[in-house]
Design a protein around this nucleic acid. Structure first.
Lengths: 199, 199
DNA sequence: CCTACCGATCGGTAGG
DNA sequence: CCTACCGATCGGTAGG
């Protein structure tokens, strides 16, 4: 009869809350994710949900972390077997495009959406989103520098320029898929990546 | 003593509501734009604000129209004196980049923000946003086709591919400005445009 | 264009 | 993990 659960059960509940939160926030945004809706969909009380996190902001940060684990598994880890430099950069871009094409998050890229939602609102969530983009751009820039150093890209290539253009191609793809439902855009994105990184 | 106003005064009030709405929605989004906040900032009652539009959705559509007038004046009209084709395309891209650089809307590109906010929510606002993007992409594609037909761009150039990459560069710039406050990104955007359209 | 109100929902808390 | 609340705010309406 006790509502108290074991530690293992509590961790399972927490994981279930986060998985559902990612699904909701992908479409509705991290602010559109409400405690009440979450509780209703999980068959819990609002205070039961909030007890795992303390506040909505803490929940949002945990959801961002969970989405980051998914992105890492879908886009970063598949590229680790590839050789550092141009080969890995190409695999990264293909995994990145594929992640959007397959609709890993139903609302498109979780982080692009979060960036747009929070870029005008100072706070911990905004800072966390910015830090994730900094880290991701840093990884892409590192592989680009390796490719230039190895002579796989023309000498004098500006790594920041390459990363900027890759990010642009992916953002345009995300936009085309979400707003226009245009799946042909994936071919445009791949074409843009090839134009930058070679075939 | 009468609260009733003349037609001219009513139109002035309506314009004031829309200008304030654009400023708020640019930062908070079209959903974050609330009747209550609008009324408070304008020194009006909520019903006074709502009376001009009937519903929040009608207000959102009117705000989108007002933002469209501003975009047209800032980006489209400056390019009309330029010769159709490549020259006009270059002026359009420069005006587009400048519009983001100067922060015409404090929250960045109004339409990119609206697209992200509404791409997962069926309805009249979403449809209006999509129609605006279709029209804008159509104009860019038209100038690109003219440039190809005139031999200003290589024969066999895919206009849709060019438009996709230009949109990507501008979206990456918008993102860099809003999330990272990175004004060096404008140079990256101009470099990407030159790489596509020539110097 | 106003006051006065409606039901719904928000994040969060008290107390168990 | 629950019930039972809190004050604030939401979009919108009635009636003038």
């Amino acid at each position: 009869m006790s509502p108290r659960r074991s530690v293992a059960e509590a961790l399972g509940t927490r994981a279930a809350i986060l998985d559902r939160s990612v699904a909701i926030a992908s479409v509705e945004g991290l602010e559109g994710l409400t405690i009440g809706r979450l509780a209703a969909e999980l068959g819990m009380s609002k205070s039961g949900v909030l007890g795992h996190f303390g506040s909505k902001e803490t929940l949002q940060l945990a959801v961002l972390d969970r989405a980051g684990q998914i992105f890492r598994a879908e886009v970063w880890e598949p590229a680790l077997p590839a050789a550092p430099g141009l080969a890995r950069l190409r695999v990264l871009c293909e995994a990145w495009i594929s992640y959007l094409e397959r609709g890993v998050f139903p609302g498109g890229c979780f982080f692009v959406a979060a960036a747009h939602e929070f870029d005008g609102r100072p706070g911990a969530v905004r800072d966390a989103v910015e830090a994730r983009f900094d880290a991701w751009r840093g990884r892409l820039a590192k592989e680009t520098r390796r490719a230039v150093a190895a002579g796989e890209l023309p000498a004098g290539t500006d790594p920041d320029q390459v990363v900027f253009e890759l990010l642009g191609a992916v953002m345009a793809l995300n936009h085309a898929l979400q707003l226009h439902g245009d799946h042909r855009a994936a071919a445009h994105a791949r074409h843009a990546v090839r134009a930058r990184l070679g075939a």
